[in-house]
């Protein structure tokens, strides 16, 4: 199993396609950082327009922490596509190349094969998110500096002390890794049903888009299924940036307003991963390799 996992990782990182995602993220974040570096003041004034009449805000609002939050909100819509590019190709790509046939004549069990392949795609997902973290957080901290973080919610604003932010990002990235691994598991499952990777990639994105629409529409018919859709839980990482408040309505450093919600969402995502990978294993065990 360990050897198989190493081989799968080796194959992933020897393919030029793998680096498209890393290059795309570098370009996307770079563009946002460049734009905010050049025209950041205007953007900050636009964001603060509603608050300037009520608050006097000083300090560096446009700091690395804030930039990272902006980037994450933008990117976490697009990252699933980049994840699907690899995960939805894991089995279908092998079938397309004909190598699935060769692999299955080797003395490896089909369950080991599925688990090794999924583990490798999960590692790819995590590495991609680490790359996002390096680019969006660390690089932004270097370029824009650090200060207290100011976030606008729908009906209120949150200010988080600079020394209380970094661990929240660590938690948010871990949660995002879990959410993106769920996307990888879905793409991986769908990759069993085709002999080329286009179909599973499109199917994965279609499921995510439809589920996201259902998650965001406030229609009673859909409200009952929302808690079970993994897309409803993918944005729960934002909970790391909501703090508990005291009687004076002041944020309490080191707290999260609703940790139970984070836990519940993590469990739902974990359950989805187990179901998707379990189904992939059961289906693949019985599958005739005809490619």
């Amino acid at each position: 199993m360990w050897t198989l996992f190493q081989i799968e990782l080796y194959k992933i990182f020897r393919r030029p396609r793998t680096y498209i995602a890393f290059a795309a993220i570098t370009a996307l974040i770079g563009v946002v950082q460049l734009g905010l570096k050049v025209d950041g003041k205007e953007y900050a004034e636009f964001v603060m327009a509603d608050f300037n009449s009520s608050f006097a805000v000083d300090g560096n609002i446009l700091n690395g922490y804030f930039i990272c939050y902006v980037v994450l909100q933008l990117l976490l819509v697009h990252v699933p596509l980049l994840i699907a590019l690899i995960a939805a190709d894991m089995i279908s790509g092998e079938a397309n190349m004909g190598t699935l046939r060769v692999l299955m004549t080797k003395p490896i069990s089909r369950w080991e094969f599925i688990l090794a392949k999924f583990s490798a795609s999960a590692v790819y997902t995590i590495l991609l998110l680490i790359w996002v973290a390096i680019q969006a957080l660390l690089l932004s901290m270097l370029i824009f500096g650090t200060d207290d973080m100011f976030i606008m919610k729908s009906s209120y604003a949150v200010v988080i002390k600079a020394d209380d932010v970094f661990w929240r990002y660590a938690g948010a990235f871990c949660f995002a890794a879990l959410a993106m691994t769920t996307v990888a598991a879905l793409g991986f499952l769908l990759s069993l049903f085709a002999d080329n990777s286009i179909g599973p990639i499109v199917a994965t994105m279609s499921v995510i888009i439809v589920s996201t629409i259902l998650s965001t529409m406030s229609i009673p018919l859909f409200n009952a299924i929302k808690p079970y859709l993994f897309t409803s839980h993918m944005i729960t990482w934002k909970e790391f940036f909501d703090l508990k408040v005291n009687d004076m309505n002041e944020a309490i450093p080191g707290t999260i307003q609703n940790p139970q919600k984070l836990w519940n969402s993590a469990m739902v995502l974990m359950a989805h991963i187990i179901v998707f990978v379990g189904a992939a294993g059961i289906i693949f065990k019985r599958k005739d390799v005809l490619s």
Partner: peptide, 18 residues
Amino acid sequence: DVYKYLSAYDNLRLFARL
């Protein structure tokens, strides 16, 4: 069918390990 993006040597090494 083998991995076209790998060399013959790397393909052989990979399948030997399998």
